[in-house]
């Protein structure tokens, strides 16, 4: 069954594997030069406060040095969509196409039980999906290492090099999380195909559910995988977004992921409007609302995940997605075992 799965898989995987290999080659060719740019920049000899400036200079220059911005964005885009593509084009047809083209009657009447047929198909294709995503995400993480270091030093103000490791997109394209996404998307596609029994509708359902998961998890689930920390700080003009009084950085916690923040007035009520007394302070002296608000008794409350929780959050999210993938696989076994014809 392993050989037969490979025979069928080979037909449909060659184009995708070629595209992946091409991208890895691009990373391999441009990566060493990126590393040498980093090594020869002012970051190498920086200490204390000069590091942020050096990192800012490095990233500003990189943002206008072809091909780094485009490879950076292409890479993260590719890692974000690969699990979805796997789910849609390898998961959804796995069972649905056998039913649609009636070949299940051929496949399931060979001298091999259906459970074994499905186990081999799921395991081989699923592991291949995870391996492909792992190669992609690891090579990209290696390639982007100088950039993430510079962002970590506080130099990330120029697009596209802005987000820290815990920001939604960077988190989803680094570490081991993409493996979890790939396993989940593949199993989701397969289960959708087994339940709907038609390839194209199963593909559409896979796309919708996976997209919804990718949007809601960073917004709703990831912030609470570990109970977030809270902090009440003094108002610091440099760390405040005056439009709605949210915090832009957590004082003393570089790289922390801010989940929510608000200003508290002297009575302790949350507010998003600049007090009238301080409104006049804007305009000419843009930085002065901070001291003004502080003098009125305002403080800033911040809910956040510290940067040190990157790996615990990665593991938890990946484990969650793998558990969902196993549940989906279980659904496939149940459905196929009930003889879908």
């Amino acid at each position: 069954m392993i050989r037969f799965t490979w025979l069928q898989f080979r037909l449909r995987a060659s184009a995708a594997l070629a595209a992946l290999a091409a991208f890895v080659v691009v990373l391999a060719v441009t990566g060493p030069h990126l590393a040498s740019l980093y090594a020869s920049s002012a970051i190498a000899g920086c200490h204390g406060g000069t590091c942020a400036t050096a990192a800012y200079d490095f990233l500003s220059r990189l943002a206008i040095t072809s091909p780094y911005p485009i490879v950076y964005e292409l890479g993260s885009g590719l890692i974000l969509v690969t699990p979805g593509i796997i789910g849609i084009f390898y998961g959804a047809p796995l069972i649905a196409r056998e039913i649609e083209s009636r070949t299940f009657a051929l496949a399931w009447t060979q001298s091999i039980t259906r459970a074994r047929w499905l186990a081999v198909k799921l395991a081989m294709t699923g592991l291949a999906a995870m391996a492909v995503t792992a190669v992609l995400s690891l090579s990209y993480t290696w390639w982007a290492d100088p950039i993430s270091k510079a962002v970590g030093l506080g130099g990330g103000y120029n697009p596209p090099f802005t987000g820290g490791r815990l920001s939604s997109v960077i988190f989803a394209t680094g570490g081991i999380a993409p493996l979890g996404y790939a396993a989940f998307a593949f199993a989701l596609g397969t289960a959708a195909g087994a339940l709907i029994r038609r390839t194209v509708p199963a593909m559409a359902v896979t796309l919708v559910i996976f997209a919804v998961a990718q949007i809601t998890v960073p917004l709703v689930v990831r912030p609470h995988l570990i109970p977030p920390d809270h902090k009440i700080t003094t108002i610091q003009s440099a760390a405040l977004n005056f439009g709605n009084l949210t915090a832009t950085v957590v004082p003393g916690q570089p790289g922390a992921w801010i989940i929510s923040s608000a200003a508290l007035n002297a009575a302790g009520h949350a507010t998003s409007a600049l007090p009238a007394a301080c409104a006049g302070a804007t305009g000419l002296k843009a930085q002065s609302p901070g001291p003004c608000m502080t003098s009125l008794g305002y403080k800033e409350t911040i809910t956040y995940q510290p940067a040190s929780r990157y790996w615990p959050l990665q593991w938890l999210e990946t484990a969650g997605y793998l558990a969902l993938a196993l549940a989906m696989a279980g659904l496939c076994f149940w459905r196929v075992g009930r003889r879908v014809s």
Partner: peptide, 18 residues
């Protein structure tokens, strides 16, 4: 089981193949 599957040959309607 696999043994019983091996005892019965089946040609389905419209003879599907890959």
């Amino acid at each position: 089981d696999a043994a019983q599957l091996g005892r019965v040959g089946f040609v389905a309607q419209d003879t599907p193949v890959y």
